[in-house]
Amino acid sequence: MAEKTITARVFRMDPAVDEESRYQEYRVPFEEGMSAMDVLDYIYQNLDGTLAYYDHAGCSLGICARCNCKVNGKATLFCQYLVSGDLTIDPISPSKVLKDLVCERKRENP
């Protein structure tokens, strides 16, 4: 039997070139207990390296809160959202997107 897969619908937008956002769909193998971060890691590492989500630093264990986002319309953290089936992934502030799922932040110093 083929392994179970799920569909992730992911918000994509590069404001430097795109006028409008779009959703891109990916098929990802499902594993019991996986988080939305595990889904994004799988996509980035195996399917599409152009996807931007906050991944160059951060903890994956719910303490840094830098991966705040929306999954299926609800605000959450990628790393703490437990996946049970197909999902739609959005940035926390779609109007302030730096790239895909990464949003702009105010700098505290020059």
Partner: peptide, 14 residues
Amino acid sequence: SPAAAGRSYNKEWV
């Protein structure tokens, strides 16, 4: 080589 063009949050570059 990163698949994405552009410098802003280009994770594959990092």
